[in-house]
Design a protein around this nucleic acid. Structure first.
Length: 874
RNA sequence: GCGGGCGUGAUGGAAUUGGUAGACAUACGGGACUUAAAAUCCCGAGGCCCUAGGCCGUGCGGGUUCGAGUCCCGCCGCCCGCACCA
């Protein structure tokens, strides 16, 4: 730097020029390409790969920025970091686009991928693009078909019928969310329930192991582990048969599973699901029942829909024997709130101790019998069921098992023992988890590699014949699955007997695609799905980052896949994700005008707080300021990432995404927040250049032998910042590292403003900005590379190891202890850092301010927490 | 309905996990610089009481403790998931 240059105001940092420059340099030096044979310790950081919807959403920016900070930080810490990117590319939206815009799903998808890849590239993410793939690449789904056939051979896949929402006009299965008020979202037709033969992955084979595995996942949020535990839903109960008083259609018993056998004495009816074989058999002769069965399932079969629906029942007229009281029978009803998928699809109703049963009993005037009461309160149940936790002691009545006062758990076990003794039933562990149906009647998915032969049944396609490729020439003009009505694709011959046969035309659930992609990244071009040794070397993923919406399904399916791949010899990894982080959403205020929702870019806000007024930027129309919501196209509250990056640069977007909000919480997008982030970027650039300019041209890095107090203070701030940022990034507490960096920046500014010309301060300032730039590098990599170069460095920051902090600067010799009197802060005292309790107490009692506060009183107690606080109780 | 989570200034949040509540930022107010604006820099700020100083204060009501934003019990409010959306 020359003297004349020093007097010029530094140029504003120009991200539009700087960012592409460094992206090109990183790319040319291939600094983010990862080698499998690199000897350094591995670190695998992965963000949930995106669905190629067409645009990178600001939520993606947040997700990938977090992952990138971890990747860059770990790289600086000497790890061989794997940080790949791919595309979760199969799925319904591509088919919807095909139907609406007459574009081929493949073209639509790959165009979207191209567009989104360019968007990701301008973000400056440290990704290894050489490993990129899309799940719709034949190379990928080919290997998925290998996995499927291996799972099939290992007995992990089977055929099962299950009910689906069927749209009779579109000839398609509807997702629960596509059923709106009992009608198909597109056709508007009344939805029917259909039994469909499906391929299922036998995830229930691993129910116990999936449950047990959660205990070791201590780098997962407790919340997610709890959700998975509840989802797997292990419970102990009684499985027993209720004898029909008159056998019918070959049924002698109705098999029931209950988790509350302790209420057996209060049973007053049997309720079976509309899909229960007995209900179906009866409905064949009973039109009214058939109509009831169809009608109650119209609103959809999601648990939510069933639980929310009004309780409805149909009296079959059948009765069963009460298992305890020989003189009693119980009526058998078909009820809409019974799930065929859980237990046996039949329950006994005990209205006194289950609210749902009580509602049902009151509606249909069935009897209500108490089996137990709260201790010392035998008020009979009226319209509120008495449902104590199983651990609570209750007083039993009408009980066969000889319990009188016991906890519910004891009552459960006593009843199970009694029932087993009587030969009525058996104690059983029951899981809520159901097998995973993977068949989808759609085109844009991985074909299920199976051939149906009249003689040989369902035969897997031989591995040598794989892949089963999707045909290109498909039409979406007709309703139904294009693979099914394709003129030739499905017709083939049986691999076993050679007879004419047809291909399976269902494709796989897209969750299958995302259940093993993390393993494929370890060698994305391998002939087999994975390379033994390589997969194990990289897996488990050390840090997985994604949305909480995947807390259950995607993560559980992936955990199942790891087990299934182990069982079939594809990789020896039990838990695929060692660390999991679930990030919050990016939300934005919504604006509504007379003609509907208005995008934020078209809105001008005037005034502040509750006097804020939103106006349309063109028309001046006053708009309604709506609630803050997840960004969505329908509410038009989407912020365009391209525009943000074009006007502020990627570093600003990255910095803003990391600031303020804790990463697990939702962040509200605000223009002011972005401006603030950008100001900081500019400020750092200015500060670094000012310091460089203030340093003599022949600046040497010779470290001074001694430092003034000001210089020492600044060094302490900077080294503490560096240590704290490292600590926070390890914990993914990015918002805290950002706050530390702001703090440190303020400290440098203040020190610089003093314009000290002493050599030790100049050296310290130079050290300070270097450390600042290093600490910020994982978050704002382009700016920091530019600053690093401005500081005269030849190497790239992206490859520079993290600086060691000077431990001697981290602690002070003395600490300020707050002094409380009766829990209220009254003063401070400075004591030696390593002073023990008695020394601190002595110092405190000798302190004049304390003497004054005590005013002659003798303390009852003095509580000293070393290095923390002193509390004097008087 | 079931399950899970959250609640701290005007706003986003911090608080070493039971030890000084409000760091840092945004918005705001005041000042400096400027013909002016932008940019930049400096200062102020939880509420209440006239001040010294004090009182109150982490959704609401109780409790445990020398000490509670943090732990326990009971409410209120908001958000998320519920198996074919990805």
């Amino acid at each position: 730097m020359t003297a004349s240059k020093r007097q010029d105001a530094p140029e504003r940092y120009n991200p539009q020029a700087v960012e592409p420059h460094w992206q090109a340099k990183w790319n040319d030096a291939a600094v983010f390409e990862t080698q499998n044979d690199d000897p350094r310790p591995k670190y695998y950081v992965l963000e949930m790969f995106p669905y190629p919807s067409g645009r990178i959403h600001i939520g993606h920016v947040r997700n990938y920025t977090m992952g990138d900070v971890v990747a860059r930080y770990k790289r600086a810490r000497g790890f061989n970091v794997l940080h790949p990117m791919g595309w979760d590319a199969f799925g319904m939206p591509a088919e919807n686009a095909a139907m609406q815009h007459k574009v081929h799903p493949r073209d639509w998808t790959y165009q979207n991928i191209d567009a989104m890849r360019s968007q990701l590239k301008v973000m400056g993410l440290s990704l290894d693009w050489t490993r990129e793939f899309a799940t719709c690449d034949v190379n990928y789904y080919h290997r998925q078909q290998i996995l499927f056939t291996d799972f099939l051979k290992a007995g992990l896949v089977s055929r099962k019928t299950s009910r689906v929402n069927w749209d009779p006009v579109d000839h398609t299965v509807l997702a629960n969310e596509q059923v709106i008020d009992g009608r198909g979202w597109r056709s508007g037709a009344l939805v029917e329930q259909r039994e469909l033969a499906q391929w299922v992955f036998k995830i229930t084979d691993f129910a116990q192991d999936l449950l047990d595995g959660l205990d070791e996942l201590d780098n997962w949020p407790d919340k997610v582990r709890t959700m998975q535990r509840n989802w797997i839903g292990k419970s102990r109960g009684l499985h027993m048969g209720f004898a029909l008083t008159a056998p019918i259609h070959g049924f002698e018993n109705i098999e029931v599973f209950t988790t509350r056998p302790d209420t057996l004495a209060g049973a007053s009816f049997i309720a079976i699901a509309p899909e229960h074989p007995l209900a179906q058999a009866l409905a064949r002769d009973d039109k009214e029942l058939a109509a009831f069965n169809a009608d109650v399932r119209r609103a959809g079969t999601s648990e939510e829909a069933l639980e929310k629906a009004e309780k409805r029942g149909f009296d079959t007229g059948l009765t069963v024997q009460h298992p305890i009281y020989a003189d009693q029978t119980l009526p058998v009803w078909v009820a809409n709130f019974i799930l065929m998928d859980y237990g046996t699809g039949a329950v006994f109703g005990c209205p006194a101790h289950d609210q749902r049963d009580l509602d049902f009993a009151r509606k249909y005037e069935l009897s209500v019998t108490d089996t137990y009461f709260a201790l010392n309160d035998d008020t009979p149940v009226d319209n509120e069921a008495f449902v104590p936790p199983k651990s609570q002691k209750v007083q039993y009545v009408n009980q066969p098992a000889g319990v009188e006062v016991a906890t519910g758990d004891e009552g459960v076990e006593a009843t199970i023992a009694w029932a087993e003794n009587q030969g009525l039933g058996k104690g059983q562990e029951q899981f809520r988890l159901r097998d995973w149906g993977v068949s989808r009647q759609r085109y844009w998915g991985c074909p299920i590699p199976v051939i149906h032969c009249e003689d040989c049944g369902a035969v897997p396609v031989p591995v040598d014949d794989l892949p089963v490729k999707l045909p290109d020439d498909v039409s979406f003009d007709k309703p139904g699955n294009p693979l099914d009505h394709h003129p030739t694709w499905k017709h083939t011959t049986c691999p076993t007997c050679g007879k004419d046969a047809v291909r399976e035309t269902d494709t796989m659930d897209t969750f299958v695609d995302s259940s093993w992609y993390f393993a494929r990244f370890t060698d994305s071009t391998a002939e087999n799905p994975t390379v033994p040794g390589t997969a194990e070397a990289w897996l488990p993923v050390d840090q997985y980052i994604g949305g909480i919406e995947h807390a259950i399904l995607h993560l559980l399916y992936s955990r199942f896949f790891a087990r299934a791949m182990k069982a079939t010899g594809h990789m020896d990894v039990r838990e695929p994700f060692k660390g999991l982080f679930t990030q919050g959403m990016v939300v934005h205020e919504t604006y509504k005008g007379a003609d509907g929702w208005i995008e934020p870019a078209k809105v001008l806000i005037e005034g502040e707080d509750d006097r804020r007024v939103a106006r349309h930027i063109d028309t001046g129309e006053v708009l309604e300021i709506g609630s803050i919501e997840k960004m969505s196209k329908s509410k038009k509250n989407v912020v365009d990432t391209d525009e943000i990056i074009a006007s502020y640069g990627a570093d600003t977007a990255r910095w803003f995404m990391l600031s303020d909000s804790p990463p697990e919480r939702d962040v509200i997008w605000s223009d002011a927040g972005v401006e603030g982030a950008h100001r900081h970027i500019q400020r750092v650039w200015r500060l670094v250049n000012d310091v460089v300019a203030a340093t003599p041209d022949d600046f040497s890095s010779a470290k001074p032998n001694s430092f003034s107090k000001d210089a020492l203070d600044l060094r302490k701030v900077m080294h503490r910042m560096l240590a704290a940022v490292a600590d926070d990034v390890e914990k993914l507490a990015f918002n805290r590292s950002v706050a530390r960096i702001y703090d440190a920046t303020n400290a440098i500014s203040k020190a610089f403003a003093k314009k000290s010309q002493d050599a030790d301060m100049l050296w310290t300032l130079r050290e300070a900005v270097s450390l600042l730039v290093e600490a910020m590098q994982p978050m704002t990599p382009h700016l920091c590379e530019a600053c690093w170069a401005a500081l005269g460095n030849q190497d790239m920051l992206a490859t520079k190891p993290w600086s060691e902090v000077d431990r001697t600067l981290l602690d002070d010799d003395t600490v300020m202890l707050p002094i409380q009197v009766n829990g209220k802060k009254r003063g401070d005292i400075s004591v030696a850092k390593d002073a023990d309790k008695s020394e601190v107490e002595a110092a405190v009692m000798a302190d004049p301010t304390v003497q004054k506060l005590l005013d002659g009183q003798t303390p009852k107690r003095v509580i000293v927490v070393p290095q923390r606080i002193v509390n004097i109780v008087v």
